[in-house]
Write a protein that binds this DNA or RNA. Sequence first.
DNA 1: CGATAGTTTCAAATATTCTTGAAAGTCTGG
DNA 2: CCAGACTTTCAAGAATATTTGAAACTATCG
Lengths: 201, 201
Amino acid sequence: MPRLSKGSSTPPVPLARLTRAQEQFIQVWGQMGPAWGVSRTMAEVHALLYVGAKPLNTDDVMERLRISRGNASMSLRALVEWGLISRVHIRGDRKEYYEADQDAWSMARTVIRERLRREILPLLAALYDIRDQTGEHAPGGEAPMRLKPDELASAEAVATHNQRLDELVSVIQTVDRLGERFVGSEGKGLRLAATLLSKVI
Amino acid sequence: MPRLSKGSSTPPVPLARLTRAQEQFIQVWGQMGPAWGVSRTMAEVHALLYVGAKPLNTDDVMERLRISRGNASMSLRALVEWGLISRVHIRGDRKEYYEADQDAWSMARTVIRERLRREILPLLAALYDIRDQTGEHAPGGEAPMRLKPDELASAEAVATHNQRLDELVSVIQTVDRLGERFVGSEGKGLRLAATLLSKVI
DNA sequence: CGATAGTTTCAAATATTCTTGAAAGTCTGG
DNA sequence: CCAGACTTTCAAGAATATTTGAAACTATCG
């Protein structure tokens, strides 16, 4: 990746070209959004704040993205909740300004953290719950022995079912723990992990 | 996680309870689907084949999930394309049967592989493209020197823009490479990685 | 070669999710 | 504490995505 190391000598670029590049980025990032658990517009707003690299207020966002006030407000708020952007106050101005997290690695950590919290943890909880319904410790309620044979699930079916669930839980737990490590370790977890892995495996 | 190690002694379980557990699993897994890039129904079909652990045909799926033939057909086909289930022929029966990949780790690898292919790679390509529009090598077309000063983007703006894009590309490249390693290394990549990481960081 | 069983396709119907815009709410300076 | 500036909310409307069902297609059996 030669581009990344050559640094940032900046030759003259027509303004229109920069704007066009920004717009394209916003569009691409926006399309990626839904696949990441944020709406298209939310992703667009984020993209705008991220490439623009300077604080914007709600009206700026509305104007630049041609979206309604309500939409802009909700998207900005959601992004703040995710922790991907933050409110900034500009002195002498009564409006709220918003500024994107400028560090791409920190962004990545945020996304991972939020997805763990919103998706993986509830999923794990639900799976535990389901697994418990057919666990070893025969559940307290009704006494299963009093049923006729064909009202009992075959031991084999139960065993398979439990096995499948256990495997799944195990995988998801691993993913969760991996994620937690990336997110935690206060910083370069992901990068370190990447480096490590590329050497070891 | 004591549950996982205790093994699979299977006490009698009422059939209704097993069925209920399966249904709950199907529902939970289905809800997770959209967050993973597969439709709810697709995820449900997959869940059904996974917990059921025995091959089913289109009619079985329709009946069990109460969905239309068309939907069942499309979902099954998509799952086959993803590589999460495969067609099985049962001798003496003219129908096509489908069977889920039974190994949760292999499932995880499949999902990662497909998401890399469908999302990350196109994204990277697009980002390269965008980045090239404001790169060092002044683009060939028009000669930017002939524009009036205010038709040029400020060097600072361009520099920031490029920096942002480069950082992003770098992060995404890392994710991509990480993913490739998990997926490749013909097997227990993810598990190994997890173990490794949990020791090192 | 039909006839039949099975599968796929796709336009229309449905369900879901996102967006708008105006009304209601909140904050701040005077 | 009022007036204006700004923000949030939310029901209705618009846009997307999914699902259906029936027709078209394909393969197999006798």
